[in-house]
């Protein structure tokens, strides 16, 4: 990691959701360039939603995401469920070569150097020799390797991976993690949704713990504690689907500082807002005042 690197992504009081129901609630903070961040949290905590928001697929319903100078095409996003239609008659080579879209556009042909790059990417994910196989003949793990190869060719400075290691065998997971760590070493910024805490501890220096609201963000060892995880679980369960309108915007506008300051090592427990101001919306039980540790 580069602790002194400039922030690449800045979340400013960000709320993302569907039909007014927030899935990510009032998230503020920064992710520095070159960071390798594991996004963790219980099911329904808003992890995938956050990635969709950063990828530009979902418009914030409150606050905003500042990607600085990055354009949308500088973001490579790999959704959790592949929409690839396996019955479509295309070869593995053709699928992976589409990672070069930004260079080729809709009409450009592949030159010899680009063909070499496609083969190199396939080799890097352990899929050499599969070039001419139809995409439908691949196993789940092989398809995931091919998606990684395509992502590699997109050559994006910001990479978003939504549960890339789910439902594939351990050998494939190991290979793909090595590929991902290679991207990290090249200085790319990576946000990965992961469920396996063991993988998080071993490979990810930084963690963002979500439970609809941001719970904690910082060095992995300090985020992956029983206390914080339990709190994330409670927050997630206590969510009320019929909640009345949220009026936090005014309150949060008052303080923009505290959450932004956590590249330097100490864990920051992120709170949706400070108490001590009048408001009328109900709080989840763990939101009691004893939890304050700023």
């Amino acid at each position: 990691m580069h602790p002194s690197a400039p922030p690449l992504i800045r979340f400013d009081n960000l709320t993302l959701g569907y039909e007014r129901h927030p899935a990510v609630h009032h998230l503020s903070g920064e992710i520095r360039a070159g960071a390798l961040v594991a996004v963790i949290g219980p099911n329904g905590a808003g992890k995938s939603t956050l990635l969709k928001g950063v990828a530009g697929e979902l418009r914030p319903i409150g606050g905003h995401i500042d990607l600085g100078t990055l354009t949308r095409s500088a973001v490579a996003y790999m959704p959790q469920r592949s929409e690839i239609d396996p019955s479509f008659p295309v070869s593995v080579f053709e699928v992976v070569a589409m990672g070069l879209w930004r260079e080729l556009g809709a009409f450009g042909g592949l030159n010899r150097k680009q063909r070499e790059r496609v083969r190199a990417a396939l080799t890097a994910v352990g899929m050499a020799g599969f070039e001419s196989r139809p995409i439908g003949s691949l196993s789940g793990g092989q398809l995931q390797r091919a998606r990684f190869a395509r992502l590699m060719l997109q050559n994006a400075p910001l990479i978003l991976l939504d549960e890339p290691f789910a439902a594939i065998d351990s050998r494939t997971v190991e290979d793909l993690i090595r590929v991902m760590l290679g991207w990290h070493a090249e200085g790319r910024t990576i946000l990965t949704v992961v469920h396996d805490f063991d993988q998080v501890r071993r490979h990810f220096p930084t963690c963002l713990l979500l439970a609809r609201e941001p719970v904690a963000f910082g060095p992995t060892a300090q985020v992956l504690t029983d206390t914080l995880l339990a709190r994330a679980r409670r927050l997630s369960e206590a969510f009320d689907e019929d909640a009345p309108e949220c009026h936090r915007e005014d309150a949060d506008a008052e303080r923009s500082g505290p959450a932004g300051n956590h590249g330097g090592g100490q864990v920051v427990q992120l709170r949706g807002h400070r108490h001590g101001h009048p408001h009328d919306h109900p709080h989840a039980p763990p939101h009691d005042h004893s939890g304050h540790r700023h």
Binding site: A55, S82, E83, I84, D85, F88, M98, I135
Partner: peptide, 22 residues
């Protein structure tokens, strides 16, 4: 003219939306 975008739109529309406005 539409061949490549159309092929991608057929078999992986999410990817096409991610990389272009086609």
């Amino acid at each position: 003219l539409l061949f490549r975008p159309l092929v991608l739109e057929c078999f992986d529309p999410a990817f096409l939306r991610g990389v272009s406005r086609w």
